[in-house]
Amino acid sequence: MKTREEMIRDIHRRIREYEAERRKKRARAAVITASLTPVCGAAVLGTVLLKGGMLSPSAPPVITPDGGSQVTAELTTEGFTSGSTEIPAAETLPVTTASFSDVTAATETENVEETSAAAVQTEAVPVTTDAAEGAEAPAETAAPAEDNTGTGMTVPTEQPAGNADRLLISSYPSPGSESMTAPRPGHSGMAWHLYEAKEEYRDTADYHVKADIFTESDQVLDAGMIQAEAERLSGLGYDVKVESEPVQTGGDYYYLAFVMTYEQLEDFPASPEYGYVLRLYDY
């Protein structure tokens, strides 16, 4: 039998868990919506291009012979003429569609842009349509590991220890707020960009993560305590080390730096003494 205090504590814990789960579901729904929007946009764009005759074999080429540094696209449809638009390569959006499978293969060495009136007005976002080369889709998304123009994802030149063959995510573009409340001891919280990256790449990638740790009242800044925590996590199989950065007011700011798998992120073993804020290394 529980005492009344234990019952009250358990009830509050269960209420908090329920609310956290509900927030997670909402965030998941938002991520799905956000990821479907560009796909739908691409589908609409494809339809417009198809109807406009741009995708027919007789259509004028959309890739210039100079490797795609500049693209000239001219749309002529019955009710709509966009005219000619020139866009610098760095500002445009890599798009792969079923009809451009030959173009897709060239993305590692060439910047390939497909422009239209709609694309010019759209903010650059990573788009990979479902039809594009079937099962190769994730690889295409992950491919520009050394080419930061596409997905907005960056990978450090010197990668920390980890599986060299796997994609290592260290940053992710996200409009979400980065400020968050320090979790209570025994809990961990992810920054929005890390959550989104994790949901997108799941177990196809590893994650380069920084973590600040907190007690009930304050952030833990003591190097010894952070080192002890790193050793505990290392003992649990985490690739973790203590890193520091100088701060303007003097001294150093210490934090934990990880290379984590998706599963390790999902099942992060928070110590009952600390709360953890996890975020991508180069957020």
């Binding site: 529980k2 019952m7 009830i11 269960r14 209420i15």
Partner: peptide, 18 residues
């Protein structure tokens, strides 16, 4: 069973809270 009743009591208050 008082132990099951205890869990159900807790469930009832969790429902109020959620």
């Amino acid at each position: 069973n008082i132990h099951i009743a205890e869990e159900l009591t807790e469930d009832t208050f969790v429902l109020l809270g959620t």
